[in-house]
Design a binder for these strands. Structure first.
Lengths: 186, 186
DNA sequence: ATTCACCTACCTAATGGAAGGTAACCGCAA
DNA sequence: TTGCGGTTACCTTCCATTAGGTAGGTGAAT
């Protein structure tokens, strides 16, 4: 299973830096030091790769969110850690969240990958809602009137923040885009 | 100049639905009813197309923003009209803002296109800042403490909103993502 | 004659595959 | 122990199509 994961790691990096249509199986093969036909062994078609990527990404990301919830007891700290996940993923404007990359080329994805994409947003937004609800209760996040609406907005805000930073290749644009969220954490 | 604009219209639609790497000159030629080599007459390389697309998009979008400013006198109304521009561009989750599509494949773009991309975000964010500043003064937008930070956040939020709606192919996700902004307009 | 906007024909490189093969490893039965 | 079959993970070779172009040409309008 080592080569398969190495391929997924590399594919994820390519997709997040160039978009899903911006790299080929040939690129992937070269970076992994195997032949293109061997990549097909692990992922019969590019669509299979998109599914495997998105499935893994969602599982790993949700694990990280659950780790945050276990390690931090206040809504404020959880939200700041969440923002840090997105900040790291932005990588100074050099990279995007995988789901952004896949959303753009979504018309070419199989239904299974689209379902994983939708599940990612649904799951992350649900987690954010629990955080904002906690923020309302523990008072560590300011101005929370509707946790559900706040969660939807924050989900969009962090994804948009990565795009703006990516377009400008500038980490400070990410910070400028999330500053309102940061300012609300006590 | 008619064919050139028809090509730009079609290219913009393709890019916003499939991503910039998701369509080819052959696709464009077919949809325009001319030969691929003729597309090259108008745009020598795909990079030239990306520049022309982004330049036009920014000019047209800024014109729309200025029209909003001329037609609406309150910050609230302006912000709602701005959101409406993004809502229309989202087209029920079927489409994205051009700059999102180009940001994803940004590593393959020429410097001129990247500069147009950066200028788009800069100009739109600057306009938003004037709106939030007005909102602070006229009291029609709630909870504005730092207009600059608000502008950065709103820029990110609307772009993220389109992505979330696109991923789910669901217009209600767009609405859920901007609801906090809407709720703040009096 | 020049320009514009189209054309045919062609190019190289690349794309996402498909088919058939090999070698190493493992488990199992004789 | 040995041989066999199955599995895994790689390989070469090949395919049809496509991608982004290039060169040279034509006809209409001015």
């Amino acid at each position: 299973m080592d080569t398969r994961n190495a391929l997924l790691d590399q594919a994820e990096e390519f997709a997040r830096r160039r978009g899903f249509d911006g790299f080929s199986f040939a690129d992937l093969a070269e970076s992994a030091g195997i032949r293109k036909a061997s990549v097909h062994y692990h992922f019969p078609a590019k669509a299979d790769l998109s599914f495997a990527l998105m499935e893994r990404y969602r599982v790993v990301f949700m694990d990280k969110l659950h780790a945050i919830s276990a390690a931090e007891s206040t809504a404020s700290a959880r939200l700041l850690q969440f923002l840090n996940l997105y900040r790291q993923a932005s990588d100074g404007g050099r990279s995007l969240c995988l789901c952004v990359a896949l959303s753009v080329t979504q018309t070419a994805l199989p239904a299974t990958s689209i379902a994983e994409l939708a599940a990612f947003h649904r799951d992350v937004t649900a987690w954010l809602e629990t955080v904002f609800r906690l923020g309302q209760a523990d008072g560590t996040v300011q101005h929370v009137s509707d946790p559900r609406a706040e969660a939807g907005a924050a989900m969009a805000q962090v994804e948009g923040a990565q795009i703006v930073a990516r377009a400008a290749q500038d980490a400070s644009r990410f910070e400028a885009a999330i500053a309102t969220l940061v300012a609300r954490c006590l």
